[in-house]
């Protein structure tokens, strides 16, 4: 189903009713999973991802080699580096898209996202504090509707914060696009913020991730053809979107922190009262 972009010029509204600079609804939670060191759940529109962080920990025995083999003795080779290794594992559930499409682990797109994510995070996390160890980030995509890489980066940031891994600042990501296709060669094309699946299929777009409140770009992925003249506008909109995302994530983390402090003080309070009664 081709996307009809002709209507944009009439009301300046996109297919899902947003204006050019509007984000979709972002809903995020941290500490969703009790067993993990850090975990998060993030929705950007209909894109839903879950992230679980384990580590920093001693690199486990090389998996997959003899499967069940090997006994209790841990340790083993690997992990000799001076910095922690960030291992990212993305599982795209078969039911995540409208038509079921099974992607194996060897899927090239998934592998590329994994390496992008692992490079981005390795640059931001203070991996030098954890030599000879491994930080395992496993991401599950439950539902996808565009801006997948951006959602994955945001979820991973939240989970790393929850895991208490020291990092320079938030890494927040967002997508940006342009209102008309490359072929249209339209000089007056407006940039768009936060593409959904339909827009992502048709229009040129890029994913940009920035560090905290600054304008420092830590990741930039553009896989589509776009006129060089439009790129600057897209980038500016994207970076601006990242700041908005940062605000939202910051609120989520602060709210969780407040909740935890509150819960902590409540416990303490009752404990003190009990003592008074005695």
């Amino acid at each position: 189903m081709p996307l009809d972009t002709s209507t944009y010029n009439l009301a300046l509204l996109r297919v899902d009713g947003r204006r050019w600079n509007e984000l979709r609804r972002i809903h995020a939670q941290i500490r969703t999973q009790a067993a993990a060191d850090g975990s998060s759940y993030l929705e950007m529109g209909h894109t839903k991802v879950m992230c679980v962080v384990t580590g920093p920990s001693e690199p486990g025995p090389r998996r997959g080699v003899a499967g069940a083999g090997g006994g209790g003795g841990g340790g083993g080779a690997g992990g000799q580096s001076k910095e922690a290794e960030v291992v990212v594992n993305i599982v795209i559930a078969g039911f995540s898209s409208v038509d079921r499409k099974r992607r194996g682990r060897g899927d090239k797109r998934t592998l590329e996202m994994q390496s992008t994510l692992s490079n981005t995070l390795a640059a931001t996390l203070h991996t030098h504090l954890f030599p000879h160890s491994q930080i395992n980030i496993s991401l599950h995509v439950l539902s996808q509707d565009g801006s997948l890489l951006a959602a994955l980066i945001n979820a991973a940031t939240l989970a790393c914060v929850d895991a208490g891994i020291p990092m320079t600042d938030y890494v927040t990501a967002c997508t940006a696009g342009s209102t008309s296709t490359y072929a249209a060669n339209d000089e007056g094309a407006d940039p768009l913020l936060d593409l959904n699946h339909q827009e992502e299929q048709e229009l040129p777009g890029l994913t940009v991730a920035t560090l905290g409140d600054s304008d420092k770009v830590v990741a930039l992925v553009c896989e589509s053809r776009v006129q060089i003249s439009r790129l600057e506008g897209m980038l500016a909109v994207g970076v601006d979107g990242c700041k908005q995302v940062r605000e939202i994530l910051d609120q989520v983390i602060k709210a969780q922190g407040q909740k935890m402090i509150l819960e902590g003080t409540v416990d303490k309070g009752t404990g003190l009262n009990d003592m008074d009664l005695d």
């Binding site: 090389r62 499967g67 090997g70």
Partner: peptide, 12 residues
């Protein structure tokens, strides 16, 4: 050499 120590025979 790369595999970890095993106190038993590893059967596959």
């Amino acid at each position: 050499r790369s595999s970890p120590f095993s106190p038993h025979i590893v059967l596959s």
